Amino acid sequence: MKEIPILYTGAMVRALLADDKTQTRRTCKLQPHVGSGMTWWPDGKGTDTGTSGGAPGCYLDLCPFGQPGDRHWVRETWQHSNWPHGPFDEDCDIFYRADYMDDPHGPDGELSPEGKYRTWRPSIHMPRAASRIMLEVMNVRVERLQDISEADAFAEGVSALNSRHAGAAYVTDVRLAYELLWKSLYGAGSWDANPWVWVVKFRRVTEQVQ
């Protein structure tokens, strides 16, 4: 079993904690080549172009997000109680920005008498000991981004009834809500590019991790 670090935004961390998110999609860095009616994968194997998600099993073995039974430890925006007077250690208190999303002053806090706002550390700098969420990989597959189903959009943690993007009106189509989420993360044109993506299904591990 491998343990693999993985980054999540605050909104997705909240979805993970609520067990509303059980899938994640990540772009395949090595995109297959399509030609002559075949989809040619980085391992040299080909599949019929018309077969959605038809990656050879040996290509699935190359997934950087692990295989069934492997685990992800989640990296999120954070801070520790020793800051700014000392380094992080495993005995200090840990604060997570995702827990402050409902703060009336916003997740970055109210201006203090000293004239400082709450300061957070980027998720990429979170050490393993500070992580509070562990996910077990259940299944891995590949498919085109736009092939996502309505059920899978829900499994991505997107609630159509609670999806507001960039001040726009509430979105009632869950696939559209996921499309807008993807664009907010990866930029304009990222959805239209319709890349092949790793689809990782997981469950949150709630028992004590040794």
Results as ranks from 00 to 15, higher is better:
1 M>S: 11
3 E>T: 14
4 I>Y: 06
4 I>Q: 05
5 P>I: 03
6 I>C: 07
6 I>V: 13
11 A>T: 14
12 M>Q: 15
13 V>W: 04
20 D>T: 01
21 K>P: 06
21 K>E: 04
21 K>S: 09
22 T>D: 00
22 T>F: 02
23 Q>H: 13
24 T>I: 13
24 T>A: 10
25 R>V: 01
26 R>Y: 06
32 P>W: 03
33 H>D: 09
35 G>V: 06
36 S>A: 12
37 G>Y: 04
38 M>E: 14
38 M>Q: 15
41 W>E: 04
43 D>V: 13
46 G>E: 06
49 T>V: 07
49 T>G: 00
50 G>E: 07
50 G>H: 05
54 G>K: 01
55 A>S: 08
57 G>V: 01
57 G>W: 01
59 Y>P: 02
60 L>A: 00
61 D>W: 01
61 D>V: 01
62 L>K: 13
68 P>F: 02
70 D>H: 08
70 D>P: 02
73 W>I: 13
73 W>R: 10
75 R>V: 06
77 T>P: 01
77 T>S: 14
78 W>V: 11
78 W>M: 13
79 Q>A: 12
80 H>T: 07
81 S>A: 15
82 N>R: 13
82 N>D: 05
84 P>V: 04
84 P>Q: 00
86 G>I: 09
89 D>K: 07
89 D>M: 05
91 D>L: 08
92 C>K: 06
92 C>A: 14
94 I>R: 15
95 F>R: 11
95 F>M: 13
97 R>D: 14
99 D>S: 12
100 Y>S: 11
101 M>H: 08
104 P>C: 05
104 P>V: 08
107 P>E: 09
109 G>D: 02
111 L>F: 03
112 S>L: 03
112 S>I: 07
115 G>R: 03
117 Y>G: 08
118 R>T: 14
122 P>G: 09
125 H>R: 10
127 P>A: 11
127 P>L: 04
128 R>Y: 14
131 S>G: 04
132 R>C: 11
133 I>Y: 04
135 L>I: 10
136 E>Y: 01
137 V>M: 03
138 M>W: 00
142 V>M: 08
148 I>V: 15
148 I>M: 12
149 S>E: 00
149 S>T: 15
151 A>E: 14
151 A>R: 07
152 D>L: 03
152 D>E: 15
153 A>W: 04
155 A>Q: 11
156 E>G: 03
156 E>T: 10
157 G>Q: 07
158 V>N: 12
160 A>R: 08
160 A>G: 05
166 A>M: 12
170 Y>D: 11
170 Y>W: 11
172 T>R: 11
173 D>A: 01
173 D>Y: 02
173 D>G: 02
174 V>E: 03
176 L>M: 10
176 L>E: 15
176 L>C: 05
177 A>T: 05
182 W>V: 05
185 L>I: 14
185 L>H: 08
186 Y>C: 12
186 Y>I: 04
186 Y>M: 14
188 A>I: 02
189 G>F: 00
189 G>K: 06
190 S>I: 10
190 S>N: 09
191 W>P: 00
191 W>H: 02
193 A>T: 12
193 A>M: 09
194 N>G: 02
194 N>A: 00
195 P>T: 08
196 W>T: 02
198 W>H: 08
201 K>D: 15
201 K>G: 12
204 R>Q: 10
207 E>W: 05
210 Q>E: 13
210 Q>Y: 01
